[in-house]
Simulated assay, not measured.
Amino acid sequence: MKDLKLQLIKRGAPSVYACEGITELKKFLFSYIPEQDAIVLSKKHKNYEHYKDLLLIYLQFNDLQKKEFLPMPRSMGMTFFDSINKVLRMRKKVLRN
């Protein structure tokens, strides 16, 4: 992870980092590193700041708030939060075992 030039945005579970080290990540908004339980946002993505702010808010939501929030981004064609939810569900399964 050191080669990725990560910048910590939020401690906790999951941690959130910004990455500017790998040019291939420019096309991708985020990736998940299970060994570190870290969501890594690409600073090179054109909407990085926007998604970073939304993600930090979204991670504070409880399940009901997430369910109420999801129709809005979906109506705009945003799949970011659906992908984040897949990561969060995967984490829950792993942590249960």
Rank of each mutant, 00 (worst) to 15 (best):
M1Q: 11
M1F: 12
M1W: 10
K2T: 14
K2A: 15
D3R: 12
L4D: 10
L4G: 06
K5W: 05
L6E: 10
L6I: 07
Q7R: 12
K10G: 01
R11Q: 14
R11A: 15
R11N: 12
R11T: 09
A13C: 08
A13H: 14
P14R: 01
P14S: 05
V16P: 03
V16H: 01
Y17Q: 00
Y17N: 05
A18S: 13
C19L: 05
C19Q: 13
C19R: 06
E20L: 06
E20W: 12
I22T: 01
E24P: 00
E24R: 10
E24A: 07
E24N: 03
E24Y: 02
E24K: 13
K26P: 00
K27W: 01
K27S: 13
F28T: 10
F28Q: 10
F28I: 02
L29G: 03
F30Y: 11
F30W: 06
Y32N: 04
I33F: 10
I33A: 12
P34W: 10
E35I: 03
E35Y: 08
Q36T: 07
Q36F: 12
D37P: 08
D37G: 09
A38F: 03
A38T: 00
V40H: 01
V40F: 01
V40W: 00
S42W: 07
S42V: 11
K43H: 04
K43W: 04
K44S: 14
H45S: 07
H45G: 06
H45N: 12
K46G: 07
K46R: 14
N47G: 11
N47V: 02
Y48R: 10
Y48Q: 09
H50Y: 15
H50A: 04
Y51I: 07
Y51G: 00
Y51C: 09
K52W: 10
D53V: 05
D53L: 10
D53P: 01
L54E: 13
L55R: 04
L55I: 07
L56W: 10
L56Y: 09
Y58L: 05
Y58S: 02
Q60L: 08
Q60H: 14
N62I: 02
N62H: 13
N62Q: 09
Q65M: 14
Q65E: 15
Q65T: 12
K66W: 02
K66C: 07
K66Q: 14
F69Q: 06
F69H: 07
L70E: 06
L70F: 00
L70I: 11
P71A: 11
P71H: 04
M72G: 07
P73R: 06
P73G: 07
R74K: 15
S75I: 06
M76E: 11
G77C: 04
T79D: 08
T79S: 13
T79H: 10
F80H: 05
F81Y: 12
F81M: 05
F81R: 02
S83Y: 09
S83V: 01
I84D: 00
I84N: 00
N85W: 02
N85R: 06
K86H: 11
V87P: 03
V87G: 05
V87C: 08
L88V: 02
L88S: 05
M90L: 15
M90V: 05
M90C: 11
R91A: 08
R91S: 03
R91F: 08
R91G: 04
K92L: 15
K93Q: 11
V94A: 13
N97F: 08
N97G: 12
N97L: 09
